[in-house]
């Protein structure tokens, strides 16, 4: 008998249950679901990219069309655009879970709470990294940047930066999405803890374009790495408590 027939016809209690997936397999299943959701609502995804581009271009109006000043601070604008966009993508990724209390459905399935965190955080990392991959060449073009170091380095900085933003962001979005006034709550909680990420990511990115005469790149990447350890660690420990204790 095929499994389908087993479920549809056999007595409920007697049949053996399949073995539930472990943490890793569960993360993969949930990540596939999250990415599928993103794909099926890709119009929203496109809007996110345009939001990022729009933010980037707006800086030129806010600062005046001063090519020198814009070029000098390009990495800052680049990361701010990603940061602002991250707020939208993060609250969106929990809005879909809240709509029909799907998050409760996952908990009761049961899906491991840590796997839910990992899937959301990894999904958002992918999204922000992808956004960065669109915004980076655009920034290089419009701000007239020279790439002194390798683009591989830039991609790596973008990856660790996005990871840090997503880990902390997933944690805060899971709380804020439950509260009234969620839209303002998320940035005022998230941005303060991301200050060190912003500092390190901007400094490191600047070096990609302006060179690293004092060999500081490594210390900035180390800082980003340690921040990732802290955020992912805190998220893994605290997230299950947040979604369980209701």
């Amino acid at each position: 008998m095929t499994p389908a027939e087993t479920v549809a016809q056999a007595p409920a209690v007697t049949t053996a249950r399949p073995v539930r997936p472990g943490l890793f397999a569960c993360t993969v299943i949930l990540l596939r679901k999250d990415l599928l959701l993103e794909w099926r609502t890709r119009a929203r995804l496109n809007a996110l990219v345009f939001f990022g581009i729009c933010t980037l271009l707006m800086f030129s109006f806010a600062l005046g069309a001063n090519a020198m000043a814009l070029r000098e601070h390009a990495s800052g604008y680049f990361w701010l655009a990603i940061l602002f966009a991250s707020v939208l993508s993060l609250s969106e990724s929990f809005r879909v879970e809240q709509e029909n209390h799907s998050l409760d459905g996952l908990r009761l399935a049961p899906a491991n709470g840590r796997a839910i965190f990992l899937a959301k955080a990894i999904g958002n990392t992918v999204l922000l990294w992808g956004l960065g991959a669109v915004l980076a060449p655009l920034s290089i073009a419009v701000f007239d940047l020279r790439v002194v170091m390798s683009l591989f380095t830039l991609a790596f900085i973008m990856l660790v930066g996005s990871m840090a933003i997503s880990a902390a962001g997933t944690f805060y979005a899971s709380i804020a999405s439950n509260a009234r006034a969620r839209d303002v709550l998320l940035p005022i909680l998230l941005f303060p803890v991301l200050v060190p990420v912003l500092i390190a990511a901007v400094k490191a990115t600047t070096m990609v374009f302006e060179g690293d005469p004092m060999n500081q790149m490594e210390s900035w990447l180390t800082l980003l790495g340690s921040l990732n350890v802290i955020y992912w660690g805190l998220g893994l420990v605290l997230f299950p408590r947040i979604i369980e204790d209701l």
Partner: peptide, 24 residues
């Protein structure tokens, strides 16, 4: 429950498949 636990943007089949995978 009162809440359906369904994802609005997934199809009927996809909603069930996610749960089926989660239970192994």
């Amino acid at each position: 429950s009162h809440a359906s636990f369904l994802y609005e943007d997934l199809t009927a089949a996809q909603n069930l498949v996610v749960l089926a995978r989660l239970i192994g």
